[in-house]
Simulated scan of single mutants.
Amino acid sequence: MTEVLNEAIADYEQKLFWQTLNEQVERTQREDPEGWAEYLAEREAFLGPRPRSRQIAPEWEGLITFPEEKDETNPR
């Protein structure tokens, strides 16, 4: 029983972390677009430009929809 509770708590904490992070990123994009642009430029300078196309393993084809490919009429 304790193990189940520990797993549930860890799962909740992880979800809460990512939810908070996403909210902070969205707030930064909205409230400080200049700072966000600087961050993206610095990230690109450090990591290099993002690939123009995304290639995924064949077994994942059709299972993943990237944000730029998202169809608003399809809920998935």
Rank of each mutant, 00 (worst) to 15 (best):
R76W: 10
A8F: 04
E68D: 15
F66I: 07
G35H: 05
P75R: 02
N6R: 08
D32Q: 06
E44N: 11
F17G: 04
R50Q: 14
R43G: 03
E59M: 08
P67M: 01
E26G: 04
A45I: 02
G48H: 05
T20C: 05
W36G: 04
L5E: 15
F46A: 12
E13V: 04
Y39Q: 04
T65G: 02
M1T: 12
R50C: 02
E44T: 15
E61T: 09
I56E: 15
L16W: 02
W60C: 14
E34T: 11
Y39T: 07
R43Q: 14
E61R: 11
L63V: 06
N22G: 09
G62N: 01
R54M: 12
P75N: 08
P49R: 14
V4G: 00
W60L: 15
R76E: 15
I9N: 06
Y12S: 11
G62T: 07
T73S: 12
L16R: 12
L21R: 11
A37T: 11
W18F: 10
Q24R: 15
L40M: 13
E31F: 00
E42Y: 04
Q29T: 13
G48R: 03
A45H: 01
E34L: 10
A37V: 05
A41T: 13
N22V: 08
P75Q: 06
K70V: 13
N22A: 15
F46W: 10
P67R: 07
W36Y: 13
E23V: 02
N6E: 13
G62A: 07
E26T: 10
E69W: 03
L16K: 06
Q55K: 15
F17T: 13
P51C: 07
G62L: 05
P49T: 13
E13Q: 13
E23L: 08
E68C: 03
R54L: 12
Q19I: 11
F46C: 10
K70P: 00
F17Q: 10
I56Q: 12
E61N: 08
G62C: 06
L63E: 07
L21P: 00
S53I: 15
I9H: 01
L5M: 05
W36C: 03
E68A: 07
D32M: 04
A8R: 09
E34I: 14
G48D: 10
I64P: 00
E26I: 09
D32H: 06
A8N: 02
D32K: 09
E34Q: 10
A37Y: 00
E38P: 01
L5D: 09
D32F: 06
T65H: 04
R54G: 00
K15Q: 14
T65L: 00
E42T: 07
I56F: 04
V4C: 00
R30T: 15
S53M: 11
E31Y: 01
K15L: 13
E31H: 09
P51S: 12
E59C: 02
T20G: 05
I56D: 10
D32A: 05
G48Q: 08
L5V: 11
P33R: 01
T28S: 10
W18R: 08
E23K: 13
V4L: 03
E44H: 01
N6C: 05
W18Q: 08
G62S: 02
L40A: 06
E13A: 02
K15C: 09
A57C: 03
